[in-house]
Nucleic acid binder design. Structure first.
Lengths: 140, 140
DNA sequence: GTGCTTGCAAATTCTTTGCAACTTT
DNA sequence: AAAGTTGCAAAGAATTTGCAAGCAC
């Protein structure tokens, strides 16, 4: 978590953003969460040890991190505003449907199959979006 | 489109819902659209030939159709409130990233590969969610 | 010191709810 | 006639914007 935080801060500084205390608090909460969080969830976690934080700051922090592709928006049934540190390479997310714990998986190679099927439908594929759901070790 | 409309109406009646004019207008707009629509888009299309429709009716119509699984919620970058007639079987959607035209694809068999990869991460897979994006024939 | 960032308050936007009048069955 | 449905208006949520004060560089 310290490692990712350092990376994020470096990237932010490179792009002219400033690292303030409230902003760092938001980043720490996001990075140390095992599951995607909504703006309100982030707000409430940050407030636990920084009571004067404003919800607006959470929204604006998310906005900056998204601009630099450091965050992914995670879509789930009835929940499409949660964020999670982004996958660097081409990975896919698996979410525990009970507790929300999430991880990026590596090694799924499915592109070639997509291409064939899509051609039949007349589409030229440019990207895909795959998310798995299941039960994590603890919840099984 | 007439065929789907008839199916929907039958299913609705079976479940005690009533088919009113405004409700049918909403269904027709959804069914005849080549791309997923947001509540506001549906509202504005219906209003073109039925100026007294209320936006609330659109929301409530969507709610009923969703209850019967006749509609899918389609998630897209920056847009997760659009709806599209649902796939009957186990299909996956492809969305044109330029014009939004969407189609369900058949024949993607990828479950087995998911299972292996996920086991390595300690997850037991219960479902997945896959969406392709690309360019439709016209937009290529 | 300069200029980005914060938090408040207010404004917007999106969605839901209460209710009397109206339709469908 | 009974019961679900509509559209209005108002309430609630969620997100964005304006701005003076504060902080990072």
């Amino acid at each position: 978590m310290e490692k990712i935080l350092k990376e994020w801060e470096a990237e932010l500084r490179l792009n002219g953003f400033r690292i303030t205390h409230p902003f760092r608090d938001v980043m720490e909460v996001i990075i140390s969460s095992p599951k995607p969080l909504s703006p309100m969830e982030i707000f409430s976690k940050v407030r636990d040890h920084n009571p004067q934080i404003g919800l607006v700051t959470v929204y604006r922090s998310i906005e900056k991190l998204e601009q630099l592709d450091l965050l992914d928006h995670i879509h789930h049934i009835n929940e499409c505003q949660t964020v999670f540190p982004s996958a660097k390479a081409h990975k896919h997310l698996i979410i525990c449907e009970k507790c929300g714990r999430s991880t990026y998986l590596d090694g799924l190679e499915i592109e070639s199959e997509f291409k064939n099927i899509s051609k039949e439908a007349g589409y030229e594929i440019t990207g895909h979006w795959l998310q798995l759901s299941g039960l994590c070790e603890e919840c099984q």
